[in-house]
Design a protein around this nucleic acid. Structure first.
Length: 525
RNA sequence: GGCCCCAUCGUCUAGUCAGGCCUAGGACAUCGGAUUUUCGAUCCGGUAACGGGGGUUCAAAUCCCCCUGGGGUCACCA
């Protein structure tokens, strides 16, 4: 086994797809954690292809996701490093050198088989219920013939010559001992006709050249591993330690979380809430069609107002645990405790409920100033406050946030309290609540009467108003519930919200009276 | 279908390697109750799992075998 104490170097190698997958983020996180845990190096390498157009647009959201979560990379785009370049498209000479070496040593070969030939052979193998293996007929070409065909531009690829007499044996850091019989493995294409390398090949070259010590990736790559091991061996590379972590499944399922199944996820009871939240919030902040964001994308969580710490805590707990009880952990604590031997083997579903619970916890811990910083952009985008709020406006928002207390779970939750930001005559009413509370027998009269007391209440603060209303109901021998709900609806338009007296005090005398007047007038209609 | 992986409450997991401390622990969700002017939060309590069958052993969630189930992957995608 691999016993040399190599410095820990891990990598995450996304291909620029225009968004960061939440499951991919979890894989990246585990790589990052393992590097940080060992005072090692975390590398970001971009698996782009030469056909990639508009790289910036495709890569931007990915880098943004890392930055948002605070997962910094030691080598890679923007920061460079000793093994530059970190873009696959710029590393062609490396791949070509390796290819030439393999060909010279007879470990890879030019293959002139046409797609039709291959398809027919595959079909035949399937029909006979045997494993398809390459015919290797191109190997029989003489050097002269072969060179001639290359020279005249016959379409060809380069295949790795799988040593069919071997068994690949591997000790995976998570899955333990795994073996593959090479006699069942077709010869993989390692370079296309146009000279660009395939993933399995480029990945091996890059991992070796960048001295990657641990390849931590999702389980779906397990079946790629024997090819990569064989390639490493053919090239004389020191083998990295492989660690295949479980893939992230869709909520409540064992199926890999996939962007292609989005429509299906909309019906998933747990995911449904996240889609609904998106449908509610994103239009308010000016993102049409939810801004193209969905809960498979990391950007969704950022844009809807999650905290990095909440997302990180949830991600870390998908397929990893510290012990039998510790759930809530800061990133520092996770780094300190993260080890590969505590990664679970079976796939784990993303659990939106659990994520929300972590999120709620970390939001509660957040100082008000930071809540304010987080909430302001939402209020601005929703046009509840001006684009460049002055100190007075900020102070107002701050008071709302304080009054909200632990009702604020996501930053975007502040948008649910539009009653504090709208003009008195623009108040929206919850019709059901209006019916039930204000149209209730005698409710309007009580509110009207109490309003006259509000006119003279001094000072207009929560404790005073609290005492005032209690005296009011005592004198009338009412229960407080007989007026307070109607009062709430009259002032906020809603059946629920922050403490009633805080609410009145916050709005102030004039606005309270205005709103009550407005509501009572509305009742007439 | 071939190859490979996986299997504990609804979900995420602890326990499995070194069998007994497991009448299986925690968390989320859920259901009750308390508290509260509402919502939220908080507190208390409840329901709820070792896929099945054979072994081995004084003793098995834990070791062995078989079955079943679930999943991944089979490209000139990554």
């Amino acid at each position: 086994m691999n016993s040399s104490p190599r410095p820990v170097r891990t990598r995450f190698a996304p291909s620029p797809t225009g968004y960061m997958h939440i499951g991919g983020m979890r894989t990246a996180l585990f790589n990052w954690l393992w590097a940080r845990h060992n005072n090692g190096t975390f590398i970001l390498r971009i698996d782009d292809t030469d056909e990639q157009r508009n790289l910036d647009a495709a890569l931007g959201p990915i880098l943004r996701a890392f930055k948002w979560l605070g997962l910094n990379w030691d080598e890679g785009p923007e920061v460079g490093g000793p093994f530059e370049p970190y873009f696959q498209s710029e590393r062609k000479s490396l791949y070509h050198t390796a290819i030439e070496k393999l060909i010279a040593e007879g470990k890879a070969y030019y293959c002139f088989d046409t797609p039709e030939q291959l398809a027919a052979e595959r079909a035949a193998a399937e029909k006979e219920k045997r494993q398809f293996l390459n015919s290797r007929r191109s190997l029989e070409l003489s050097e002269l013939e072969r060179n001639k065909r290359i020279a005249q531009g016959d379409p060809h690829v380069i295949r790795f010559l799988t040593p069919r007499d071997l068994t690949v044996k591997l000790d995976d850091a998570i899955r333990g001992h795994v073996e593959w019989d090479c006699s069942l493995m077709p010869d993989p294409v390692i370079m296309r006709g146009n000279g660009s390398p395939l993933y399995n090949f480029a990945s091996v070259i890059d991992d070796a050249q960048m001295q990657i010590s641990h390849v931590i990736r999702a389980e779906e790559h397990l079946s790629n591993t024997p090819i990569q091991v064989l390639l490493h061996q053919a090239l004389g590379n020191e083998l990295p330690i492989f660690a295949h972590i479980p893939y992230v499944a869709a909520p409540g399922s064992k199926e890999k979380l996939s962007k292609r199944k989005l429509e299906q996820y909309r019906k998933n009871p747990q995911f449904k809430k996240m889609f609904e939240r998106a449908d509610d919030v994103f239009p308010k902040i000016g993102l049409e069609n939810a801004g193209g964001l969905d809960p498979v994308m990391v950007e969704y969580y950022e844009k809807i107002g999650y905290l990095p710490q909440g997302v990180l805590n949830a991600l870390a707990r998908i397929g990893w645990s510290l012990d039998d009880k510790t759930e809530i952990m800061s990133l520092d604590e996770i780094v300190k405790n993260f080890t590969l031997d505590r990664v679970v083997k079976s796939p784990a579903g993303l659990d939106p409920d659990k994520l929300n619970s972590f999120q709620a916890h970390w939001m509660m811990q957040l100082p008000v100033d930071e809540k304010l910083t987080g909430c302001l952009p939402f209020l601005i985008a929703a046009k509840y406050i001006p684009p460049e709020p002055n100190d007075k406006t900020k102070e107002t928002v701050r008071q709302v946030i304080e009054a909200l207390g632990d009702r604020l779970k996501l930053f975007s939750d502040v948008l649910d309290y539009d009653e504090f930001f709208c003009a008195d005559d623009q108040l929206k009413y919850d019709e059901k609540a209006f019916e039930k509370r204000l149209k209730a027998e005698g409710a309007a009269e009580l509110v009207r009467e109490f309003a006259t007391q509000l006119e003279t209440a001094e000072p207009f603060d929560a404790p005073t108003l609290d005492a005032l209303l209690h005296r009011f109901v005592d004198e009338k021998q009412l229960k407080i519930g007989e007026i307070i709900h109607a009062l709430r609806v009259a002032v906020t338009g809603k059946p629920q919200g922050i403490g009633m007296f805080e609410c009145l005090a916050f709005l102030g005398r004039e606005r309270c009276l205005n709103r009550i007047r407005h509501s009572l007038a509305r009742l007439e209609k």
